[in-house]
């Protein structure tokens, strides 16, 4: 008798049992519907989101009556008219857009070399160190990080202390537009790197070597070959960073010193400070529209393949 050296692994026994159980709960005849079953929770969530949007859309068409603090019965576009004609919302929207664009540009500029170093380094230790340095702040929430910057960049903070050592008077580093951008970039960097890394991994190192052998110095190889080939990743990362920055609340609230509001802060004010759900809803919908419009424009210009949907190898 030959030795029976093969044993049926325990894991397979477990899987068999699970499959038998699954067969009872969801007979094989239903299998054509299995995909829908798995997608159901996500569809439900998206459905709820759409319901919420519809409700917000409805609320946006009623104005607040300040003598009763109820929304008007009649449908009106007055909230939208208010929002469009108000200098302050124009200013706030413009600031959000500018900040989102600046943050996106700076984040991508910093994230690209970081992701490149992480993907191309030959040392596993360096790669791990870069990953840890990336994830550590990722696990610290946005608000906590913003408060950290208050401490570090404040008048009595480390930075001004060090400047004091060399005889420089304390400088106001906080509570202005650059401080908000700084906070946003620092917050977005991990998102940028994590979106770019797979795109760079997908570019064979051979391609880069090939560019070198064809006469491209390293910077020119990056510029002419790696950057264009990383475009889907850059656009994907750019969209994520842009939309997150555009809709950010905490950084302008904490690092902006109150005078650097973004659209989200204005929406908060309407909902919670003046209890005007109508105007708040109108602003919220306009933010959704603005974000969708820009993302849509990017997709139209660069194709949906930018998020690796049906991307060609």
């Amino acid at each position: 008798m030959p030795d029976r050296s093969f044993r049926y692994p325990l894991r397979w026994h477990v899987m068999d049992a699970l499959e038998r159980g699954a067969d009872i709960l969801w007979p094989a005849t239903f299998s054509r519907m299995t995909g829908w079953l798995l997608a159901a929770p996500a569809i439900l969530l998206v459905g709820l989101l759409v319901l919420g949007l519809i409700q917000i859309g409805d609320a946006s068409m009623h104005v607040l009556d300040t003598s009763t603090f109820r929304m008007s019965e009649a449908y009106t576009l007055a909230n939208y008219a208010d929002a469009f004609t108000s200098a302050v919302y124009f200013k706030v929207a413009w600031r959000s857009l500018l900040a989102a664009a600046l943050t996106t540009a700076l984040t991508l500029a910093f994230a690209f070399p970081y992701a490149y170093a992480m993907v191309r380094t030959r040392s596993a230790t360096v790669r791990k160190a870069l990953l840890i340095a990336l994830f550590l702040p990722f696990f610290i929430g946005q608000v906590v990080r913003a408060y950290g910057w208050l401490i570090i960049l404040g008048n009595n903070g480390i930075v001004n202390d060090m400047l004091g050592v060399v005889g420089v008077e304390p400088i106001r580093l906080l509570f202005n537009f650059p401080a908000v951008i700084f906070g946003l970039v620092q917050y977005m960097l991990p998102f940028g790197v994590l979106m770019l890394a797979p795109a760079l991994t997908a570019i064979p190192e051979e391609t880069e070597i090939a560019a070198g052998s064809l006469g491209a110095s390293w910077p020119r190889a990056i510029w002419h070959v790696i950057l264009p080939m990383a475009r889907p990743g850059l656009i994907g990362a750019g969209i994520v960073v842009f939309t997150l920055s555009l809709t950010d609340f905490a950084m302008p609230a904490i690092l902006g010193g109150g005078s650097q509001d973004f659209i989200a802060n204005a929406i908060y004010d309407q909902f919670f400070r003046t209890a005007d759900q109508g105007l708040g809803s109108a602003l919220a919908l306009m933010l959704v529209a603005l974000g969708s419009l820009i993302v849509g424009a990017v997709f139209t210009l660069f194709g949906a393949g930018t998020l690796a949907l049906g991307a060609r190898k």
Partner: peptide, 12 residues
């Protein structure tokens, strides 16, 4: 001049 195993052509 080099022709690579996976050609390393520039797809863009």
């Amino acid at each position: 001049g080099m022709v690579f195993q996976r050609l390393a052509l520039f797809p863009h």
